[in-house]
Design a protein around this nucleic acid. Structure first.
Lengths: 126, 126, 126, 126
DNA sequence: GTGGTCTAGACCACA
DNA sequence: GTGGTCTAGACCACG
């Protein structure tokens, strides 16, 4: 899968990397059990520092997205620790500021639902 | 309106402040034309430095949420600069990583819609 | 002549007032020898503080635009102190940052000349 | 490129810094893609506080003159957000008070055009 | 009183 | 090393 880092973004590179891997999983480009490039390989591919890739991988592991194996490297392995309610609460908190912004800018509930659906569809198709 | 800063949060204080003011506007607690506390007052109220409040206010101004009147200090004043399409695109980008995360964690489209609606309802009520 | 203050402007109110009076003179709405409203009257008319009008009038006097007379109040009275070269140098310095900005933003020399002429025409007509 | 701050000037230091960087770009001393000194370096070079440099850099970024690359620091990168008409309108507004002043001081249209051309020529040569 | 500017020094996240 | 954040305290311009 292609990773594309925006070096001018406000977002930290390791965050961008994490998000793109998660999106890769959501969209079916990366499947459970599938190996990720080694830290070294990934760093070289996208032209960033080893440490940065390492940090992203470790955080993904902590969140339950991947396993890190000394021999096999990083492997997608979905294994989340939290209850559905905890997950929902986190999502709610993440969503709130974005929706407040959208609401102030007169994005209607329907327009928003459309945006959400558009994104979700891309994931579902896979 | 009450502002509550979480000093343990990852989020920068000025970001939390901005988000809460935006949520205050969305939820109708702050109305267009209503004055905000002065930077000094707000800083004292929530126990942070006035420069931090200043940064939040200036960013809110740049985004079109408030204006800084020479005589009256900060006043809520909604005046956004971007087209609806630009706004939607930004929201989409903000939403994507959160939805990807939700999708991986098996939050169904309906569950998500419910969360979104719950948040929007709180705004609409006001 | 009408004075219109923008209270949200970056520019200080007294500066706006000065500039509009100067523009009024340039455009012929205010002629040499013509009286200006009293400090009190002007302040009331445009809804600002006495001190602010006072500051503008005093600066206009210092620059040679008006005379202040205890009995007759403020009167337009053009009487500049500097040599043409000094004046030109000042204009040059004021112009430089604006033109640098324009140049970077790909405003051609012709486009710029057009803007300058458009402004000057309004003055000349009077 | 050399930066020269006038500590006696009315103009804020960060404004002077911004203007000189913009003039540097206009005059070809700074080219698109070229790196700027780090905030600390620049601050040290010109003997001011790094926060002041920071403010200038952030404003330049907001105006589309530079970008702040996570890896390389500040880099000249011209990318303006406004339409040509918006740009022209802003220039017009900036120009108006200066031209009014010039007109009152009997600077003819030709003399003014000469001044403008002199400045523009310096940019064009580069 | 207000916000704006500048300085100083500290700590952190990132790469 | 970089920029980002936060705090602190000072002074100024404005109204």
């Amino acid at each position: 899968m292609y990773i594309k880092i925006d070096f001018e973004s406000e977002k930290a590179i390791y965050t961008q990397l994490m998000e793109q891997i998660i999106e890769g999983i959501a969209s079916g480009q990366l499947r459970d059990g599938e190996p990720l490039p080694s830290v070294r390989q990934m760093a070289e591919d996208i032209g960033i520092n080893l440490h940065t890739v390492n940090k992203a991988y470790n955080l993904l592991k902590a969140e339950g997205y991947i396993k890190l194996d000394r021999r096999k490297g990083a492997v997608v392995s979905l294994n989340f620790h939290n209850s559905k309610d905890q997950i929902k609460e986190k999502i709610c908190n993440d969503l709130k500021p974005i929706l407040a912004d959208a609401y102030c800018k007169k994005i209607s509930r329907d327009e928003l639902a459309e945006l959400v659906n558009k994104i979700y569809e891309r994931f579902d198709k896979a």
